[in-house]
């Protein structure tokens, strides 16, 4: 269970408030106009940005002051999710040990994760030799071995074509379900939310609203969302 308790995010003229609870295992899309603070909200949860006020809690434990790696969080960023100078297996292995001192057991886990995302046999390749979809899969394999209960996606598949993006999102949803993880994904496209996210967190006008059922919200959007969707 993720709790944002009276969180106030502020930088220069930018202000965002968040005060809500996200139940464990929920899949929620974060939707709103660009510049509203969707990525910043994720950065606060993942520990890259400190709120001015309020607390971030995971299962009742205050994680507001923890560094990113100590949080129960795995993140996929918009880009640069893989180190181009490391092999596919090394990139995944970093999810197990950040110093890459892997046991044979660990190597087996890496192989299994790669097999799960359909990249068997590509262990030794460098990211530059992979397609966009394959790179996304490598990052997902790392999420698998990280086994963190909270997964944050900051539009990592935005650069992929529509069909490929849907394929990747389906895979993410499957993996999150297998891990029993809570999934929070930033999205520009309401269709993404309809497809895999039963809940939506609307970020607009300086407020990140509590999660609401997707269908109901999208079918009867409040003014801020309606303006963004153009309906």
């Amino acid at each position: 269970m993720l709790t944002l308790d009276g969180v106030l995010i502020q930088q220069d003229a930018f202000v965002l408030r968040a005060d809500f609870v996200l139940e464990t295992g929920t899949v929620a899309a974060v939707i709103g106009p660009s510049g509203a603070g969707k990525s910043t909200l994720l950065n606060v949860i993942s520990g890259f940005f400190a709120p001015v006020q309020g607390r971030v809690l995971w299962k009742g434990q205050d994680i507001t002051d923890l560094p990113p790696a100590k949080r129960p969080v795995a993140v996929l960023f918009q880009d640069n999710n893989l180190f181009p100078h490391l092999t596919v297996a090394q990139n995944v292995g970093l999810g197990i040990r950040p110093d890459l001192r892997l046991t044979s057991e660990d190597h087996r886990h890496v192989g299994q994760a790669l097999a799960r995302v359909g990249l068997e046999g590509l262990d030794g390749r460098k990211p530059a030799t992979l397609s966009g979809g394959q790179k996304g899969r490598v990052a997902l394999a790392r999420i698998l071995v990280q086994r963190r209960p909270l997964i944050l996606l900051d539009e990592p598949f935005a650069a992929l074509g529509p069909a490929l993006k849907v394929e990747m999102l389906d895979l993410v949803a499957e993996l999150a379900a297998e891990l029993g993880a809570t999934l929070l994904m930033v999205s520009h496209d309401p269709q993404d939310a309809r497809r895999i996210a039963p809940h939506v967190i609307l970020v607009a006008d300086g407020i990140a609203m509590p999660p609401q059922p997707t269908e109901a919200l999208l079918n009867d959007p409040p003014p801020a969302l309606a303006a963004y969707l153009g309906t």
């Binding site: 993942s46 990113p68 993140v75 960023f77 640069n80 999710n81 180190f83 970093l94 950040p98 890459l100």
Partner: peptide
């Protein structure tokens, strides 16, 4: 480009220098 990724994976000190 890679600081956030390394942070989120907990790559610090010597490991960060060696692998990143």
């Amino acid at each position: 480009d890679f600081g956030h990724l390394a942070d989120s994976l907990g790559m610090t000190g010597l490991a960060r220098f060696r692998w990143l």
